[in-house]
């Protein structure tokens, strides 16, 4: 016998608990609020934190977009979209502007988000101090006492070893001048997008059982030393080979046969939008 799944998979009690946790997270920007991470039909560490936030917030009229590594069509994104649509029947979009809930892994969309949108990020390792202190009760105490010398030390070590801050992703940030937060594994390129973001940003770590948030219009400052300022990845002189965009996060693609390097937009929906715009212009011009 097949029973119909409950709307948005969870029972209402679970959704209520997760929403309550999210509210507390919004009230204390950057603070990791513990929550009872539910069992999910996907494995922990594969986006269950983000998915639980999405399922607890979504309503029948919402429009959902899911991104994985900048792409709308990768396996993880498609599976998550299928699960949410199967249990809610909401409409799915790839258009950033059309969505009001955007669940993402590894990227913040290139297009600036609006006040009526919510960005949900999947976080594998929410604790910026874990590499200096393995014990949770001690990292909690360090957060409480505003003792972030460990996070600074990690950056100092990188400078000593590599001559620069070498965070590939998860470059730690101060939220609202108080809590240090790991912004999920987004590239440094996306860190400035969190600063004074118009959209609410919720971050969920399912395996680590933590939810935290950056409320709209909140200061987010990337950690940096006085003589080693924060810098985003540079794509100077490079542009997308498909749509020609500059000032976006580019993927480097190496042709396995020729060894030739080319670059294209990491955010696939942004790239398609640019291409469509260009095509439209070309068509309009050809009729004049």
């Amino acid at each position: 016998m097949m029973t119909k799944p409950h709307f948005a998979f969870f029972d209402e009690g679970s959704k209520k608990e997760i929403r309550r946790t999210a509210l507390k997270a919004v009230a204390i920007p950057g603070y990791q609020v513990p929550f009872a991470s539910r069992e999910m039909p996907i494995a922990r560490g594969w986006g269950t934190g983000g998915l639980q936030l999405t399922l607890s917030l979504i309503g029948r009229s919402d429009v959902l977009k899911v991104i994985d590594q900048g792409a709308d069509e990768s396996v993880n994104a498609v599976s998550i979209k299928k699960l949410v649509q199967h249990t809610t029947g909401v409409s799915i979009t790839e258009d950033t502007a059309a969505a009001n809930i955007i669940q993402s892994r590894h990227r913040i969309p290139e297009k600036e988000l609006r006040e009526d949108q919510i960005l949900i990020l999947q976080v594998p390792n929410p604790e910026p101090l874990r590499k200096v202190e393995a014990r949770e009760y001690l990292t909690k105490r360090m957060h409480a006492e505003d003792d972030y010398s460990g996070a600074w030390l990690l950056l100092f070590e990188q400078i000593m070893k590599y001559g620069r801050m070498s965070t590939g992703a998860e470059h730690p940030v101060y939220v609202n001048g108080r809590y240090v937060m790991t912004p999920s594994p987004i590239p440094r390129f996306d860190n400035p997008k969190m600063h004074q973001s118009k959209a609410l940003i919720l971050l969920g770590a399912g395996r680590e059982k933590k939810i935290f948030a950056v409320p709209p219009y909140t200061d987010v400052k990337s950690m940096a030393f006085d003589d080693y300022p924060f810098a985003v990845e540079s794509f100077e002189g490079k542009s997308c080979k498909l749509c020609g965009s500059t000032d976006v996060f580019l993927d480097e693609i190496i042709d396995p046969d020729t060894g030739e390097r080319s670059y294209q937009c990491n955010d696939t929906s942004f790239c398609i939008e640019q291409l469509n715009k260009k095509e439209k212009e070309e068509v309009e011009n050809s009729y004049v």
Binding site: W152, L153, F156, E157, I159, F225, D226, D227
Partner: peptide, 22 residues
């Protein structure tokens, strides 16, 4: 901290005291 560089260990105390100049 045995798995951090010696100079990092020394810097840790200075960082903790508020120094932000590498």
């Amino acid at each position: 901290k045995m798995n951090f560089s010696s100079i990092g260990n020394i810097a840790e105390k200075m960082i903790a005291a508020g120094n932000r100049h590498v």
